[in-house]
């Protein structure tokens, strides 16, 4: 087998949780499906709006539809065989375990800092063995060197971690997608540690 075949046959046995299907979650999910991940659990309560189209993996004709359903449709166009578990629900301490319990890695892709905070605390307390890949600080453009990854045990944080004012520093496709790709690449980094060595 080639290295690439080894990678895809390993990844198709893996399950990744995506908590939130906005700019981070929708784009990270697409990259993971293209990489050959076999199973995604995606949870989001929201619907696609016109303001989402500038950076999220949705199309103009999907406005008004639940994000998890629109994303399911788009991901199945990349790989019709992918196993998807979409939940059109807000992730809460009451349902998070049911959603993400069986995942090998979880990607945090919420919008609000308050949600990021409870989820980081909750995951660290209830599912500490599952690596959690978060994003913090994704607004703006230019000076890409500000983007970084902070690693704290099983917790990984991608982004610039700088407070920005949303009026003057909007979220734009290149950086949002870039941070989503940092998250997706970290998923591969973690999962491919098991990659068998070529003799």
């Amino acid at each position: 087998m080639t290295v690439f075949q080894n990678i895809t046959s390993l990844l198709e046995t893996k399950c990744v949780g995506i908590a939130g299907a906005g700019g981070l979650g929708s784009n990270a999910a697409a990259a993971l499906v293209r990489s050959g991940i076999g199973h995604l659990v995606i949870a989001d309560f929201d619907t696609v709006t016109p303001e989402n189209i500038n950076r999220q993996f949705y199309f103009a004709d999907q406005q008004g539809r639940p994000k998890v359903h629109a994303l399911q449709e788009n991901l199945l166009r990349i790989n019709p065989k992918i196993k998807l578990q979409p939940y059109k629900e807000r992730v809460t301490p009451g349902n998070a375990k049911d959603f993400f319990n069986t995942c090998h890695v979880v990607v945090e892709a919420f919008d609000k800092a308050t949600e990021k905070e409870w989820f980081a605390n909750w995951m660290t307390q209830h599912l500490p063995h599952i690596p959690l890949i978060m994003a913090s600080g994704i607004a703006g453009w230019g000076q890409q060197d500000v983007l970084r990854i902070q690693r704290a045990g099983n917790l990984y944080v991608c982004g610039h971690q700088k407070e920005t004012d949303t009026t003057n520093t909007p979220m734009l496709a290149p950086r949002v997608t870039q941070v989503a790709m940092m998250q997706a690449d970290l998923v591969l980094e973690i999962l491919l540690k098991e990659l068998p060595r070529i003799p």
């Binding site: 919008d111 913090s136 607004a139 917790l155």
Partner: peptide
């Protein structure tokens, strides 16, 4: 110490 900033 990790800063959590809104945006997703």
């Amino acid at each position: 110490i990790i800063h959590l900033i809104s945006g997703g």
